[in-house]
Design a protein around this nucleic acid. Structure first.
Lengths: 197, 197
DNA sequence: TAAGATAGGGAACGACCGTTCTCAACGTCA
DNA sequence: TGACGTTGAGAACGGTCGTTCCCTATCTTA
């Protein structure tokens, strides 16, 4: 190829690189995937990969960040199609059920990255915490509209479902979490507020 | 040292090896810790380590298995000091709060191991699933006595609390999960059973 | 057409991995 | 006492990691 690379081409190559790395990292773990494998899967020369990202750690962070945008975007799009606030909270768990059923589902990419690199990479740790905070804050908007005193019960049910489905390979935890969430919603619609969640 | 090694000494050395490996693996991840580091921390020659466990994978499985016994034993001992069935379920979350507050707490060792090795080691995957099944089954005994229709709501709250506290470093999720669990218990004591959890 | 700049392909590098092997030192028994 | 067997300490091995470098091919510009 010639002298410079077009900006459009560069954008596509960067996306292909992130696609390849994300799929490999999620399926097999981050440390288990070497840069040579990322090169083969992306079709990009190693030199260009290292021009995009100076180190593997930077690539990992970029993968997590882009996945966060896509993941939360899809979640929000699904949930906010539902109008009634209580149903909207429950729709979160329907979306999770769909995710759990996808082939290759292997739990939460951020939880996995945290377990593997959270203690050795400050940048990865920060990215994981940022994602979890954003997830929590998004749910807080929905639970507030539904009259719940706080988002935490719903958040914990969702996190528990993700982790459990990831390990067992069974999407059922999404439905169990949805049932529990319905109880929380009903309890705060009807009567009690004493032992609130 | 002399010719054979006494059985008692062997037991102690094996325990020291598992102690050292568990602490290192939990703190820094499994792949990030080399066998040389396990050797230094345990004070055992590499040769003896490989006589105990033919491969690192076997050591990892043994560490997880022994941790499972100790972890579930401590949980059960704490919880079953409480007599009233509903309070007994809630005591689970008090125990979690104590665990989360310990220095070096970094989430669930089995979830972390699953994220790192679940897709590459069949033996680790089986050990992780076995632990989660045992945890689920233990909670089922307590929730049944408390009149809940199933253990899953409580299990998911507990799993969510562990994962969230591990990432944020804040023990508060244990208290939020306890509050949500109290709502689930109250809902099934008082009235509804329609949208059960 | 000739000179220059930049790209791709992949070898090369140093470090470290899990695992095996060598070897001297020591205690036991004939 | 002397041959034997087992140990501890760590060097060594083959492989792989993340990262860098070399070299040729290609396109642009004069």
């Amino acid at each position: 190829m010639p002298v410079p690379i077009s900006e459009e081409q560069s954008r596509q190559d960067r996306a292909a690189l992130l696609d390849a790395a994300e799929e490999l990292f999620y399926a097999r773990g981050i440390q288990a995937v070497g840069m040579d494998e990322v090169r083969t899967a992306s079709g990009l020369p190693l030199k260009r990969i290292y021009r995009f990202f100076a180190a593997k750690e930077d690539l990992v962070v970029a993968v997590l960040r882009r996945r966060d945008e896509r993941w939360r975007g899809a979640l929000t799009a699904h949930v906010e199609r539902v109008a009634e606030p209580g149903e909207r909270v429950l729709a979160l768990f329907d979306w999770l059920a769909g995710w759990f059923g996808q082939p290759g589902f292997r739990g939460c990419a951020w939880v996995n990255a945290h377990g593997e690199l959270g203690s050795s990479s400050e940048a990865v740790l920060a990215e994981v915490r940022s994602h979890k905070r954003a997830f929590h804050d998004r749910i807080a908007v929905w639970t507030r509209a539904a009259g719940l005193p706080g988002p935490d019960g719903i958040v914990l049910l969702a996190e528990g479902a993700i982790v459990t489905a990831g390990i067992t390979g069974d999407p059922a935890p999404a439905h169990r979490a949805r049932e529990a969430a319905a109880v929380l919603l009903a309890a705060h619609r009807d009567g009690g507020g004493a032992t609130a969640a």
